[in-house]
Design a binder for these strands. Structure first.
Lengths: 204, 204
DNA sequence: GCTCGGCTCATATCTTCGTATGACTGGCGA
DNA sequence: TCGCCAGTCATACGAAGATATGAGCCGAGC
């Protein structure tokens, strides 16, 4: 199930990285470890499914700041946070920022494994949804500008006649664009097209 | 903005309840306070917008257990947790269960007000969405069984002819039910009906 | 200059949809 | 028993949609 997921460990403590690596590998997970957030970002090996295991306290950037900057860096990996000297506000901040779990050292191996497993599962789910949205967007990109306009208005529920009026076209032209949009989008019915438009967040 | 929202305080410490009540009222919020989870549940005054402020440690049920049982009790109020003797696992548990915030005593008044304000805002948003879904469901209830079947298949993208085949009806009958469903649901176009069906989570 | 693709429109034909009118049946409550 | 309502179906007509064929315009790139 988790064969090709990678656990990314970011911690300045080499011995802890080694211990965690061993733990994750012992259950069949792949691991990459980094001594700093910068090292993680520069390697860019986080394109597959996986998760991030972050220490809060690291030299330089705080793990919390790093976690909050991940979105801006284009990283969508779920985060499991850990710390040796944590407090409640720190925990709340991490959880509000979307951390899957926040573990205080020393933690039980099983707790870490459970957290990582949950994180990977969430990432897989998020990726599969994102993949669908991406595929849809790719198809939408193949539409000509006119076809997109027509698709938008049609999905909003307008009749060909109304679309023609809005775009100042003849109804025949609208039908042609409409047919082309349906074909290119792979929509067999109007209902399909409406759902695609919603998934693409086109205006109604 | 928050005129008619009610902050529900559940804490066995009467002096703290009083202090919090004063704080909330000072910013124009209404307050109800209870000395135990059971007291809160028995009063059933939580139908409007608002939020819950819970102490973790109370005689009898733990605030955490209580928080997790709220869904089962039909309570959808967001929770702001507070505690005098908290630890990280407790915080994580509360946040995973959906708490808006988790405040360690002593906390700053402003932090509590911010948390409560965010909680109420979330509740308002959730309520307005739920209200829409409820309104939609109510209209769906006015449909006859046949009309519901037809609506479902139509929203799935089937043509009248196919619907007729699936339900072993004549196409004319399908048209009649379809028209009735559109009228009763207030759908002016097929696109509307499709979106309603999605919002109702009808099978595709 | 020329081709190609996007955009435009017309005519024609067929399918599908929407709705009105009218009618028959069966169940359920007054 | 009577009336009402959901459900069923038919005929008919007009509106809307889908598609094919043919054609003219224009801008970008070879």
């Amino acid at each position: 199930m988790n064969e090709d997921a990678i656990v990314h460990i970011v911690d300045d403590d080499a011995s802890l990285r080694k211990a965690l690596s061993g733990l994750f590998r012992s259950v069949g997970l792949s691991v990459c470890d980094y001594e700093s957030p910068a090292a993680f970002l520069s390697e860019k090996r986080y394109d597959g499914p996986g998760c991030l295991v972050l220490d809060v306290r690291m030299p330089g950037a705080s793990g919390l700041d790093f976690q909050e900057s991940l979105d801006g860096e284009g990283v969508d990996l779920p985060v499991v946070m850990m710390t040796g000297h944590g407090d409640i506000p720190m925990t709340v901040r991490a959880m509000k920022a979307g951390a899957i779990d926040f573990l205080a050292k020393p933690f039980r191996d099983q707790d870490m494994l459970d957290a990582v497993s949950a994180a990977i599962e969430r990432h897989r789910a998020a990726r599969s949804i994102a993949a669908g949205a991406c595929e849809l967007h790719a198809r939408f990109e193949t539409l000509s500008p006119r076809e997109r306009q027509v698709m938008e208005l049609v999905a909003a529920g307008k009749m060909n006649k109304q679309v023609a009026g809005d775009l100042e076209l003849s109804e025949i032209t609208v039908k042609i664009h409409r047919g082309a949009a349906m074909r290119k989008m792979g929509a067999r019915t109007l209902a399909d097209l409406v759902r695609m438009a919603d998934a693409l967040a086109l205006p109604r």
